[in-house]
């Protein structure tokens, strides 16, 4: 039943007064059951969030930078906590290095209105976590070729790239 529920809402919630009752009818259960299940799935983190997903560019967030660093494995958690605490950082992940092509293991996403502001924020970020001299790269996005909220079969994703 959890799977049926997740599949029923993957493309979006019905925008009607009692959306959970609509979904319940669709999958053959009660509104209470749908509400209970959704609350549990949110609590367990299977559903990360329920709500609006904005297209950053359309709402004026034209500058989207992926900032990456090569941080010593022993320091990465400590540094990441500092970076993640900055309000303009929207995602922060540790990922594997792929040597020799890709030496970076810590990734942050910053969404901002323009590149100048984002560059300033990156400087602040480096200062806040004492990262002067650490190997780093800034990858601004130039164009988004595909941004869709994915299917259940392929998982609804955070804009991780």
């Amino acid at each position: 039943m959890d799977r049926a529920l997740l599949a029923a809402i993957e493309d979006g919630l019905p925008v009607v007064s009692s959306p959970y009752a609509d979904i319940a009818r669709q999958i053959g259960t009660s509104e209470d059951d749908v509400i209970g299940r959704l609350k549990r799935l949110l609590g367990e983190g299977v559903v990360k969030r329920l709500g609006l997903v904005v297209r950053h560019r359309a709402v004026g967030f034209d500058a989207n930078a992926m900032v990456v660093w090569d941080i010593g494995d022993a320091d990465v958690d400590r540094v990441a906590e500092k970076l993640a605490a900055q309000p303009f950082v929207t995602l922060c992940y540790r990922r594997p290095r792929r040597l020799p092509e890709w030496p970076y293991n810590l990734f942050c996403m910053i969404h901002g209105r323009d590149r100048r502001t984002v560059r300033k924020q990156i400087a602040e970020l480096n200062a806040s976590a004492d990262l002067e001299g650490v190997p780093t790269a800034v990858l601004f996005s130039k164009r988004c070729f595909k941004q869709r909220g994915a299917r259940f079969s392929t998982a609804n994703m955070e804009p991780a790239a």
Binding site: L13, L52, V53, R55, G149
Partner: peptide
């Protein structure tokens, strides 16, 4: 919301799933 949903401002109104928790997997590719 009806109007906003069809506008270019929103990509979706609904859930964000944790793929790993559903038994699936995700990667970032370059």
């Amino acid at each position: 919301l009806d109007v906003l949903q069809d506008s270019r401002y929103l990509s979706r109104f609904g859930p964000m799933y944790n793929a790993e928790r559903l038994g699936g997997d995700v990667t970032l590719a370059a």
